[in-house]
């Protein structure tokens, strides 16, 4: 595609898909309204890739201001996720927060398909979470922390795999998110030190948001009778998906040369 002459128009378009603050409201509004789980997962996978593709189309370096704006957006959405009780909104906000960091990743990365892989690494856990949202909403009516609580007691297997996926989403080690963040900070610290340190702040907010949602949904007294738990097979399947994620994570780490 020929390089767009008006680079600022390109950035506005990219800002929708690599969510910068005002434009990011579109994705969240959209994600909250879609009911179908496959559509949601597709959306989660494709959205950042579109943004990266648009960004690649705009040849020259994005101004540093955009990078800082991206990291600030990530901070804002992570901070707001700490107070959210609806699991769908929480997933949307955390996804937005992780994709906003891709501005920094794209800027410091030499190019090639490296960034796209990083975006996929960020999106993978959220796709799994979308499936969990669908599963909880169908068996308990809504995925709402506080009203639907104590999943560890009512559906232990589902709760176990859900906890592992949330850990993957907040970039806990051996999952790819951890290595992506580490690589971005390694490359960015000397170039844009302020942004790199702020990424660490976002990482801390992710941990807080993760514990808040887990306390609301998984831990605490059981709010309903024991429902239908995952079958052994589906648990094994989800476990193996997480294992694949871990192996991808370690493969990512090789790139940390």
């Amino acid at each position: 595609m020929s390089s767009l002459d008006m680079s600022s128009f390109g950035y506005i378009l990219a800002a929708i898909f690599l969510p910068l603050f005002p434009a990011s409201m579109l994705f969240n509004w959209l994600f909250f309204r879609i009911g179908n789980v496959w559509l949601r997962s597709g959306l989660l996978l494709v959205w950042p890739q579109l943004g990266l593709w648009l960004l690649a189309a705009v040849t020259e370096e994005p101004p540093v201001g955009l990078i800082y704006w991206g990291v600030l957006t990530a901070g804002l959405y992570a901070f707001r996720a700490c107070a959210l009780r609806d699991f769908r909104l929480w997933t949307a906000h955390m996804a937005t927060s992780s994709w906003a960091l891709l501005w920094l990743a794209a800027a410091v990365n030499e190019g090639g398909y490296e960034v796209n892989l990083q975006a996929a690494a960020f999106s993978a856990p959220f796709v799994l979470l979308a499936w969990f949202i669908f599963r909880i909403e169908s068996s308990f009516g809504a995925a709402y922390a506080g009203a639907v609580g104590g999943l560890a007691l009512t559906v232990p297997r589902l709760a176990g795999v859900l906890v592992m996926t949330v850990l993957a989403a907040v970039a806990t080690p051996l999952f790819p998110g951890f290595f992506v963040l580490l690589q971005t900070i390694t490359q960015a610290l000397m170039v844009v030190p302020g942004a790199a340190v702020m990424v660490l702040g976002v990482w801390l907010l992710w941990a807080w948001a993760g514990t808040r949602i887990l306390q609301g949904l998984v831990f605490g007294p059981a709010s309903s009778e024991p429902g239908a738990d995952l079958a052994g097979v589906t648990t094994g399947l989800l476990g193996s998906v997480l294992l694949v994620l871990v192996i991808a994570g370690i493969a990512f780490a090789e790139g940390l040369a």
């Binding site: 104590g150 560890a152 807080w208 514990t211 808040r212 887990l214 306390q215 831990f219 605490g220 007294p221």
Partner: peptide, 12 residues
Amino acid sequence: DASSHAAHRYAS
């Protein structure tokens, strides 16, 4: 103790 909110509040 998965059923106690207090334990998880302090653990966080």
